[in-house]
């Protein structure tokens, strides 16, 4: 058994080194903006760069709207299917998993082709493009949203709760807002934080639809010509991802591994 423990530590050590070095290298670089000494100059420059804060705010807004739209579409659907049409459940599940087969670059290609003319020309004004971006993010987040909301609903007895509320005379809005949604809070929060993590640094959809308004393309742009600022940005975006993942753990979402990882911005 001693030998096994050695190999266990061996793999852990190798992985730790591999995980740690790029972060260390980036962090180390970010402190060297001033020649010959360690300083936080790169971080200061980053804070003073108006594009960065502006794009971060823009992407956060897009993320929040994505969460809102995604939950508005998903929660009633999953609820009603459970309550009234359990036979439809595999269909909804299948549809929700479909985005896994459509790479982001293909999705944005299709969105642009479909909405650059025709009946619904969304790509010729900013509102339309922003909406298209949000819709694309909802599509990308669909598998995770579904899994999360569905798992949240399985944890409570939707049918009994609904019947109990109905027999006490509750209307449909009351049932949704005061019975179902409060019980789904941690599932919905988990979905929200993951969606935000996906949207904030997302590059592919953002660069083709809104360009440098979004955070992902700005990180790329800064990386093209301002290395020190870029390294500070990498550290910051790593910390943002870490915080959001930590929040997911905190609200108690676990075990949705493949849903939570296959959607990330590659």
């Amino acid at each position: 058994m001693k030998k096994n423990v050695f190999w266990n530590w061996f793999w852990i050590f190798i992985s730790l080194v591999y995980f740690f070095i790029p972060l260390y290298a980036t962090f180390n670089f970010s402190l060297k903006a001033r020649k010959g000494e360690l300083s936080l100059l790169a971080y200061q420059q980053m804070m003073e760069d108006p594009r960065i804060l502006r794009s971060l705010i823009f992407s956060t807004e897009i993320g929040l709207l994505t969460i809102l739209l995604g939950l508005l579409l998903m929660v009633p659907t999953v609820y009603l299917v459970r309550l009234k049409a359990p036979r439809l459940r595999p269909v909804i599940e299948f549809i929700s998993l479909l985005p896994f087969v459509i790479p982001a670059i293909v999705l944005v290609f299709g969105l642009i082709r479909t909405y650059s003319g025709g009946l619904l020309p969304l790509t010729n004004n900013y509102t339309g493009l922003n909406f298209l971006l949000i819709a694309g993010y909802v599509v990308i987040g669909l598998p995770y949203l579904y899994r999360s909301v569905d798992a949240g609903m399985s944890a409570i007895d939707v049918v009994t709760l609904t019947e109990a509320a109905q027999s006490l005379g509750a209307s449909w809005p009351t049932i949704m807002l005061r019975v179902i949604i409060p019980n789904l809070r941690s599932a919905m929060l988990g979905a929200a934080f993951l969606t935000l993590a996906i949207v904030l640094g997302e590059f592919t959809l953002a660069t083709f639809l809104v360009g440098l308004k979004a955070f992902g393309p700005v990180i790329w742009q800064v990386g093209q010509n301002r290395a020190y600022e870029a390294s500070a940005l990498v550290i910051v975006s790593f910390i943002i991802t870490w915080v959001l993942m930590g929040l997911i753990n905190f609200v108690g979402r676990r075990g949705a591994a493949d849903g939570s990882v296959a959607a990330g911005p590659r």
Binding site: I12, S15, L16, F19, I21, P22, L23, Y24, A25, T26, N28, F29, A197, I198, G201, E202, F203, T204, G216, I219, W220, G223, A227, A230, S231, L233, V234, S237, F238, T241, W242, M245, G246, I248, N249, S260, V261, G264, P265, R266
Partner: peptide, 29 residues
């Protein structure tokens, strides 16, 4: 380490590429 895996699997795209440039690029650490 498990938590880190959750973070790292979502840490991709542009920032990841840049982190590797700072590590293994021509003048990487």
């Amino acid at each position: 380490l498990m938590t880190f895996c959750g973070v790292a699997s979502n840490f991709a795209g542009v920032p990841l590429a840049q982190a590797f440039i700072f590590t293994l690029g021509r003048v990487g650490l």
